[in-house]
C-alpha cells in the first residue's frame, strides 16, 4: 500500500460495479470502453495467491499518466457546471451540488508543477469543459472532495512487484504527493497520494 494505511482503512471499499455505476452520471455518457478495459484486465491477469493485485484508477493530467488506488475513489463524474467561490484558496476550482452535498472541486496540476496557474473552469466566463474531462470524487478527513482530471483512461491491476516506491528524482521533493511508479509492460503510471495532493 503506497499511501497512509491508517486513513485508507477508514474508507469503505466500493465494489467495482458500484463504481462503474457512477459513470452513468449522465445518460448521454458512453462508458462501454471502460467495461471492456476492466474485463480485459480481468482476463489477462492470473494473480498469484501470495501476490494479489490491487486495482488502480489511471487518469491523465497534461498528457502524463497517473494512478490512484481505486478503493479511495468514491465515484467519477462528468464535469458539471461549477460555481466559483470568491476569495477561496487558488487550488479550488469551484463547487457543485452532488446528491445533496456541496462538493468542492480542486486542481492538482499546480501542485504537480504541470501548470503555473489553475485554469478557469467555473463561472460565466469559463469555456465549456473538454468532453473527456472528469471529476474524481474522494473522501477526505474533512468531507468529500473532487479532483479535476483531463480524462480517465482505465482501471489497471498492479501487483506489488509492479510497483517502484523508491524512485530517486521522482518520489519526494516538491512533488511530495507522488509516492512511486507503477509499471505494466511498457506503460508507466505515476502513483499519487491523493490526500497529500489535496493538502
Amino acid at each position: 500500500m503506497p499511501s497512509a494505511p491508517g486513513l485508507l482503512s477508514l474508507l469503505t471499499v466500493p465494489a467495482l460495479s458500484v463504481l462503474l455505476d457512477t459513470f452513468f452520471y449522465r445518460p448521454d455518457e458512453d462508458i462501454g470502453f471502460l467495461e471492456e478495459l476492466v474485463a480485459g484486465t480481468d482476463a489477462t491477469s492470473s494473480p498469484l495467491p501470495e501476490e494479489s493485485p490491487e486495482e488502480y484508477l489511471a487518469f491523465r493530467l497534461e498528457g502524463e499518466f497517473y494512478a490512484v488506488p481505486i478503493h479511495g475513489v468514491r465515484e467519477i463524474v462528468k464535469v458539471p457546471p461549477l460555481t466559483e467561490v470568491p476569495r477561496a484558496a487558488p487550488n479550488l476550482l469551484g463547487v457543485v451540488y452532488l446528491r445533496g452535498e456541496v462538493l468542492p472541486v480542486y486542481d492538482i496540476k499546480v501542485k504537480l508543477r504541470l501548470t503555473d496557474k489553475a485554469s478557469l473552469v467555473a463561472g460565466p466566463d469559463a469555456p465549456e469543459p473538454p468532453r473527456s474531462a472528469r471529476i474524481i470524487v474522494v473522501q477526505t478527513a474533512d468531507g468529500l472532495a473532487g479532483i479535476w482530471v483531463d480524462s480517465v483512461s482505465e482501471v489497471v491491476r498492479l501487483r506489488p512487484s509492479m510497483l517502484e516506491l523508491d524512485v530517486p528524482g521522482v518520489v519526494g521533493g516538491e512533488r511530495d504527493c507522488v509516492v512511486g511508479l507503477g509499471r505494466r509492460n511498457k506503460q508507466l503510471f505515476i502513483l499519487l497520494d491523493i490526500w497529500q495532493a489535496l493538502a
Binding site: L92, V95, V102, D142, G143
Partner: peptide
C-alpha cells in the same frame, strides 16, 4: 442551504 463543509 447546505454548509460548504469542512474543507471550505
Amino acid at each position: 442551504v447546505n454548509s460548504l463543509g469542512g474543507r471550505l
